[in-house]
């Protein structure tokens, strides 16, 4: 059977990792596919997987009775989805929904956490890369919060 290694190795999030680290990750991976409209994550549910998006579009959403659901961020090809699997109590904080046919590689969270604990050099690499993603999201969220295009700006 063809392994997921070449697909993983080419993804921007993984690119440049040591082959042995990629090998370790392959061991936790499976190929997944979501139809348009399908939920990938639900707020409050266990965060068991980390998604590396190959193509498609996923919107992060949050809902309230008054405002219904709002989209807060879009993930696309080249992005990763989900951080809650990293931190206890390992519960998703947002809903994520495929907006179109979306293909991804799902990494089993327990498996990946275990491998990171065992091999801190893999853990450090992944932590750095995730920190970079989080930094971008935080900067983006700050700009969104500033409401730059509002007419009272």
């Amino acid at each position: 059977m063809e392994t997921l290694e070449p697909i993983l190795a080419e993804h921007p999030f993984i690119k440049g990792l040591k082959p042995e680290h990629i090998q370790l990750m392959v061991g936790c991976s499976r190929n997944v596919k979501f139809e348009a409209g399908e939920f990938i994550l639900r707020e409050g549910y266990e965060a068991n997987e980390f998604y590396i998006i190959r193509h498609g579009q996923v919107n992060l959403e949050i809902h309230s009775p008054k405002r219904h659901a709002v989209t807060i961020h879009t993930c696309r090809e080249g992005d990763v989805l989900g951080w809650s699997w990293l931190f206890p109590p390992y519960l998703w904080h947002f809903d994520a929904r495929a907006m179109e046919l979306t293909r991804a590689i799902a990494l089993d969270a327990k498996c990946l956490r275990g491998k990171c604990e065992k091999d801190p050099s893999l853990g450090y690499e992944l932590a750095k890369r995730l920190a970079h993603v989080i930094e971008h999201r935080l900067q983006g969220a700050t700009l969104q919060l500033l409401d730059l295009y509002s007419s009272t700006d």
Partner: peptide, 13 residues
């Protein structure tokens, strides 16, 4: 920057 879920496009700065 912000949207209801009715918007199919991209959300983010």
């Amino acid at each position: 920057d912000r949207s209801s879920v009715n918007w199919q496009g991209n959300v983010g700065v």
